[in-house]
Computed example of a mutant assay.
Amino acid sequence: MIKYLGNLSGLNILLLIAVVFDQRYKMEYVNWSINQIFYPSKATNLKEKVEFCLKSLFEEYNGPNGGSLSGSQKTSFNEDGNDDPYSWNQFLQSTGCKSNAKSELDKYLEESVETSSDLDVLNWWKLNSNRFPILANIAREMLAIPVSAVATEYVFNVGGRVLDPYRSSLTPKMLEAHVCLQNWLKGTPFSLFSNEDFEELLKIEQDMVSQQDAAHSAS
């Protein structure tokens, strides 16, 4: 946690919001962690930012016509009143019940946290998708994002794994051929090669080894 929260300027708020969608933690744990890591002034600003981003995300998924009323209440409103013989909709509008009703997000955050350590978070959202359809949609997309700590240099740059001390004299052209050959051999099953193709690849590899040996001898 400290590794990702230590630098406030480079902090990804989605990492904190993803923790909120874990029923074992929610906002209580996020706020507690922020208070443990940052000074009070920075902690307050960060907690407000997380709360604002969480509500903005919910409103984005809820849509421009989304409100605090349930789907059955929204569809029951009718201008001519044919679907409201007892003036129930008029009562809701006149008393302001629409603005006072709690949203899915408020209801979810107010519920007690789960205490089971082996809780399956994705399965929980699947089972509770009827109660929290909008939040379940957000959780399905957010929690499916893989988080990796692998350095970008290691993933996208193979130069350091090819140019070792014994191959430091390779020319750029030979290095490119070596990298391409490795990708071809690893990316295509041998069963897809004909005998002629495999023999040609083997000959190319042998020629590369011979040229490397000659280069080492010359150096």
Score class of each variant (00 low, 15 high):
36 Q>V: 00
58 F>E: 00
82 N>W: 09
172 P>A: 00
135 L>W: 07
9 S>E: 10
36 Q>A: 02
151 A>D: 14
141 E>L: 12
56 S>Y: 13
115 T>E: 13
109 L>C: 09
63 G>I: 09
171 T>A: 07
9 S>D: 10
12 N>A: 04
215 A>M: 05
49 K>N: 13
32 W>Q: 09
203 K>A: 12
128 N>H: 05
77 F>C: 06
113 V>N: 15
145 I>V: 15
153 E>R: 10
156 F>P: 13
24 R>C: 03
212 Q>R: 06
33 S>G: 08
58 F>P: 00
160 G>D: 14
196 E>P: 01
108 Y>F: 05
217 S>Y: 02
155 V>R: 13
206 Q>Y: 01
208 M>F: 02
172 P>H: 07
137 N>D: 08
104 E>A: 06
5 L>A: 13
108 Y>Q: 04
192 L>V: 14
195 N>T: 14
142 M>N: 10
157 N>F: 06
57 L>R: 02
127 L>T: 03
190 F>R: 14
10 G>C: 05
111 E>K: 12
114 E>N: 11
25 Y>N: 08
61 Y>H: 14
17 I>C: 03
98 K>E: 12
167 R>K: 11
75 T>Y: 05
11 L>D: 07
22 D>L: 03
12 N>G: 00
34 I>W: 08
175 L>K: 15
82 N>Q: 13
155 V>P: 04
153 E>K: 15
133 P>R: 03
122 L>T: 11
137 N>T: 01
168 S>M: 04
206 Q>D: 12
103 S>A: 08
153 E>C: 07
138 I>V: 14
201 L>P: 07
22 D>Y: 02
33 S>M: 10
46 L>S: 03
192 L>P: 05
37 I>N: 01
215 A>W: 02
59 E>G: 04
153 E>H: 08
106 D>P: 08
119 L>R: 06
170 L>C: 06
150 V>Q: 05
45 N>L: 07
193 F>D: 10
41 S>P: 03
200 E>T: 10
78 N>R: 07
87 S>T: 09
127 L>N: 01
70 S>C: 15
1 M>H: 13
176 E>D: 12
65 N>I: 13
54 L>F: 04
96 G>Y: 10
181 L>I: 06
164 D>E: 03
25 Y>R: 09
217 S>G: 06
210 S>V: 04
119 L>Y: 07
178 H>I: 00
72 S>L: 14
136 A>W: 15
22 D>P: 01
179 V>M: 15
58 F>A: 01
105 L>I: 15
146 P>V: 14
84 D>W: 03
4 Y>P: 00
177 A>C: 11
32 W>N: 08
204 I>V: 02
155 V>A: 12
113 V>A: 13
52 F>T: 06
96 G>L: 07
54 L>P: 13
210 S>M: 03
19 V>A: 04
